[in-house]
Lab assay of single mutants.
Amino acid sequence: MSIQHFRVALIPFFAAFCLPVFAHPETLVKVKDAEDQLGARVGYIELDLNSGKILESFRPEERFPMMSTFKVLLCGAVLSRVDAGQEQLGRRIHYSQNDLVEYSPVTEKHLTDGMTVRELCSAAITMSDNTAANLLLTTIGGPKELTAFLHNMGDHVTRLDRWEPELNEAIPNDERDTTMPAAMATTLRKLLTGELLTLASRQQLIDWMEADKVAGPLLRSALPAGWFIADKSGAGERGSRGIIAALGPDGKPSRIVVIYTTGSQATMDERNRQIAEIGASLIKHW
């Protein structure tokens, strides 16, 4: 067993022997301040990774656009098919120029040779490549099948209805392509620590998230040296922004954090800054 596999296998073990965790309302004060600064709703939840206990939450059962955070769930569904012998990570998928959609920095470079399922998941999570996500959605049967996968996990809230990039439209009061912070946090925890996926697939999923290259201005910008984070960000229309993450000190994750916002007129930089400040408060009061 590799060191990384050992780390993920012992996530519940280490967490069980940690000192009790206590909620700190100071972080919620910052979440509410972010709402004021952005002029928009902000949803927040913080779960203990081992027990699933909610440590703090704000608007945990209000719907927010998922945006690209759905790509972690998508690759979880792909990995479940791999575990069941219905898919192979090494299978190569070929596609054409007509398949390319807006923001496809990886797939646009491989029109000639195609990409493997493993490479597509890596591109979808680490670079948020939209064509990679659409190609992977095709392998599982489309958005409705991802929703069905989530329902089978016990998540009857999260739903995907459309493809990239239309799913980022974020129309107010439109339930399409949305989740709730509580539902997303619980589902992410199941994917990373539950028995739904094999140990190898859980490790692969967290490795992809740990290698995320496009979430630097968010929670990662607030992390002290030595902290662990595996995350996936999302951005959408109407001032929408979000991030889902597993993080913790001492090089291992111990909490799940989900943050979503929508309806702001603020710039992307300002949305990023507010999420980073929430992260800084979380870490300060850990």
Rank of each mutant, 00 (worst) to 15 (best):
H24R: 11
E26G: 10
T27M: 10
V29R: 09
V31M: 01
K32Y: 07
Q37N: 08
L38F: 08
V42C: 00
Y44E: 09
L47P: 04
L49V: 15
S51V: 15
K53S: 02
R59T: 04
S68A: 07
S68C: 04
L73R: 08
L79W: 03
S80M: 00
A84Q: 13
E87Q: 15
R91V: 10
R91Y: 11
R91T: 07
S96P: 06
N98G: 05
D99W: 00
K109F: 13
K109T: 15
L111Q: 01
M115T: 00
M115I: 08
T116F: 06
R118F: 11
L120P: 01
S122T: 09
A124D: 01
A124I: 13
I125E: 14
M127K: 07
S128W: 03
D129S: 11
A133N: 02
L137H: 07
G141W: 12
G142F: 02
G142Y: 11
A148G: 11
H151Q: 11
H151K: 02
H151F: 09
D155V: 14
V157Q: 00
V157C: 15
T158A: 05
R159G: 11
R159S: 04
R159V: 10
D161A: 01
D161P: 04
E164A: 14
E164D: 14
P165H: 05
I171S: 06
I171A: 02
I171K: 00
I171W: 12
P172H: 15
N173K: 08
D174K: 04
R176K: 01
T178F: 14
P181M: 14
A183E: 06
A183P: 10
A185W: 07
L192T: 06
G194S: 10
L196D: 04
L196I: 10
T198N: 09
A200S: 09
R202K: 06
Q204L: 10
W208F: 12
E210Y: 15
A211D: 03
K213C: 10
K213Y: 04
L219T: 12
G226W: 09
G226E: 14
F228T: 11
K232T: 15
S233G: 10
G234F: 06
A235Q: 10
G239M: 14
S240A: 09
R241W: 14
R241F: 07
I244L: 13
L247K: 09
L247G: 01
G248H: 04
G248T: 08
G248A: 04
D250P: 09
G251M: 06
P253F: 15
P253Y: 00
S254I: 06
I256K: 14
V257N: 01
T261Y: 08
T262D: 12
Q265V: 08
Q265D: 10
D269F: 05
R271T: 05
N272M: 14
Q274M: 10
I278K: 14
I278Y: 15
G279Y: 00
A280F: 01
L282Y: 01
